[in-house]
Simulated scan of single mutants.
Amino acid sequence: MTLSTPLLAAAPLVAGLVGPALIGATPAQQPADRPSVTSVERAAPRAEVVEHVAARTPADQRRVLGYWTPQRMAGALPIDLLGIVMKDGGLLSGLSSRSGVGTAPEVAGGAAKIVTPELPGKAVPGLSGPPLVHGLTGGAVPLHQSARPQATTSGSRWVTGGLVSKTTGRVFLTVGGVDFVCSAGTVKSANRDVVVTAGHCVKDGAGEWADNWTFVPGYQEGGGQPYGAYTARRMFVAGPWSRSGDDSYDVGMVALNTSRGKHVADVVGTQEIAFNGSRGGQAYGFGYPADPPYDGERLFYCAGRLRNDPYGQTRDQGLGCDMTAGSSGGPWLTRFDAATGKGIVTSVSSFKYSDDQGTMYGPYFGDSARALFTTAQNS
């Protein structure tokens, strides 16, 4: 099934640079409000977008914001544990035999008792590479901190500030009655409400949609919300992700509600977003890793050259990165200016192979991601 709304034309390329076209520079008239529905698939000539309506009414928004008490935020699990606590039908639970994720533990009152499995890193029968583990890393890694941004790092704390420290934030969500955390980032859009994240931070593959979805830009240690908290209004994933959890399409776009009457873009700013760019090159990946040795309380980044998936299982590109679960959905920026914290979002943190914990993979932003964005910015 090929699907979505008509795509907006891309803005001109940045002068003097070769790369993807920038999106979101031209305002678009927002359509009239649609009927309240749970989810809907819409047809488009080149891509497929699957939509879910989240917290639309003021009462819904108050319920979601009230749900995230400091205790619930502190107790939320990194998203890679989703397959452990889900029973059947979800993406990661279906991959448990592939990734060594393990069987479901006891779940009571939104809390899960986790037994850490071994990750053998063996090739999956019929596939050319080892199993995938979403957002997961293992083993102790050093936590670097440098006042001067590095062009190559597998995981350093971002202490320079700038725009990226405000546009990147933590996501809090609930799936199957269990609370989780991810990362996300704001992007320039017509409605001034769009954030980009991983598909598995929005919908569990062929499984259920996330509930209580809330974005906290510029999250600060101890649960600080210097720019407020923004609930999801509408969520969007690609058809191949929604049907089968295809990792090449592990992208989610979310249109947020306003907070205290203000759009997120007007409060924290945005990064540019681009599609169908050249592969390879330099990238910076940001997020809030929450699995040890990280604790999810601070913004970290990886930086280096991108490379193709060596196993050919996805169209993703890899970035040397020790960040752990919780960083899933964090934005990857190219043409990044470390002095200002500005760049162009061209991917998000998605998965690792179980026998290569030093490389994070992110989906290539092509026509499918463009369709998601176009739909989200006009929602």
Rank of each mutant, 00 (worst) to 15 (best):
R233N: 13
R148G: 10
C182I: 03
V237L: 01
E106K: 05
T103M: 11
G129M: 08
G296F: 00
D322Y: 04
P217L: 01
V50L: 07
G110A: 12
Y288E: 01
N276F: 03
D204C: 00
G304S: 09
P149G: 02
D247I: 10
F373A: 13
G109L: 06
V124G: 07
Q61Y: 00
T314F: 11
Y67M: 03
G287H: 01
G109T: 13
K166W: 03
W213E: 11
S97H: 15
G24S: 04
Y361D: 02
L136P: 05
V101R: 12
D246H: 03
K188E: 10
T57I: 14
G169V: 12
T186V: 03
P130M: 12
G223A: 10
G94P: 11
G304C: 03
T168C: 13
T374N: 15
K188C: 02
E51Y: 03
V254L: 10
K342H: 07
V37M: 08
D367P: 07
G161S: 07
T186H: 08
P58N: 09
G19S: 00
V264H: 11
G94C: 02
V164Y: 00
G296Q: 05
G24L: 09
S242C: 03
G75P: 09
S128P: 05
A9K: 09
L92S: 06
G224R: 10
T340D: 01
A9M: 11
G296P: 06
D367E: 13
P45N: 14
A123C: 01
S93F: 02
D295F: 00
A190F: 08
E106T: 15
L372K: 14
G252R: 04
Q61W: 02
L136Y: 01
F365D: 08
L256C: 04
G296N: 05
Q30T: 01
V49L: 05
L92T: 00
S350R: 05
G207R: 06
G326C: 08
V164T: 14
L136M: 07
V254P: 06
K122F: 06
S368E: 15
P27S: 08
A123N: 03
Y219K: 11
L17P: 02
G177C: 00
G94E: 13
G205I: 02
N212S: 08
V14N: 02
A274M: 01
E208H: 02
G330Q: 10
R42T: 14
G326L: 05
G222L: 15
L136G: 00
G312D: 14
Y227T: 00
V171W: 02
P217S: 11
V164D: 12
